[in-house]
């Protein structure tokens, strides 16, 4: 059983925003809505690090826990999705999310908060897979086409990985072994738990 995860290798991420733009392109999200962002720590100083962040599709998702309308569901592959028809745009999920993933497009002319929008792991939503309806509400459903999230597939340095947790952690593990450092992973514990099996072994590198 595939368990879909994202993983960003900060040793490779160069803050090029390819992921952010690939997402905008694939789902045609409007101005002001970025399902994915690139965050920089220590900008302009030695040790500067960047990582790409979106919904981490948590194993124990806080958004899901707090949603008053219970509009979230988790697919068999571990992708956290929601039904926009139920969403009331209350923003509670935004407060709960440790990664700031939920976004609220402006709706109407008075700046009301629209229905929540977030990364779908390119898996659409509860509408018919590949339908226009699904595309308009949630963007393209690549998983149903046998493809993986475009942000990771287009990553300029293959820093951002997406797919089956076992597969991508193996890819990452190989790199970490070669460099002999950088085994720590941003946000992995936060999203997937400290005892999650796929966390790569520490290589005694920087912390």
């Amino acid at each position: 059983m595939a368990r879909m995860k994202f993983l960003c290798d900060s040793e490779r991420c160069i803050e090029c925003n390819g992921c952010v733009t690939a997402c905008k392109n694939e789902h045609e999200t409007p101005w002001g809505i970025s399902r994915r962002r690139v965050v920089t720590l220590g900008d302009g100083k030695p040790g500067e690090k960047t990582i790409s962040v979106a919904c981490m599709h948590c194993s124990d998702a806080p958004c899901m826990a707090v949603c008053p309308t219970d509009c979230f569901y988790r697919t068999d592959e571990g992708v956290v999705l929601h039904d926009k028809d139920l969403c009331i745009g209350c923003g509670y999920c935004f407060y709960a999310c440790p990664f700031g993933a939920p976004q609220f497009p402006q709706a109407g002319n008075f700046g009301q908060r629209g229905k929540m929008d977030k990364c779908t792991f390119c898996a659409g939503g509860p509408e018919k897979d590949g339908s226009d309806e699904e595309y308009k509400k949630y963007g393209r459903n690549r998983l149903a086409e046998g493809k993986l999230p475009l942000c990771a597939e287009m990553c300029s340095t293959k820093a951002l990985l997406a797919g089956d947790a076992d597969v991508i952690s193996e890819i990452f593990r190989e790199r970490a072994l070669r460099r002999g450092k950088g085994g720590e992973l941003w946000g992995w514990k936060q999203a997937y738990g400290a005892d999650g099996a796929p966390e790569p072994a520490k290589q005694g590198g920087k912390t």
């Binding site: 900060s10 965050v39 920089t40 900008d43 100083k45 962040v53 440790p98 700031g100 720590e184």
Partner: peptide
């Protein structure tokens, strides 16, 4: 590179709506 705890992150997120989380001390571009 890792968040200390969820609560702190949530607070930060609340303060800076437009910055997802964990705003570094020196602001990035």
């Amino acid at each position: 590179l890792t968040l200390k705890n969820k609560a702190a992150a949530t607070r930060r997120a609340r303060l800076t709506r437009d910055v997802p989380m964990n705003a570094p001390e020196t602001m990035d571009r």
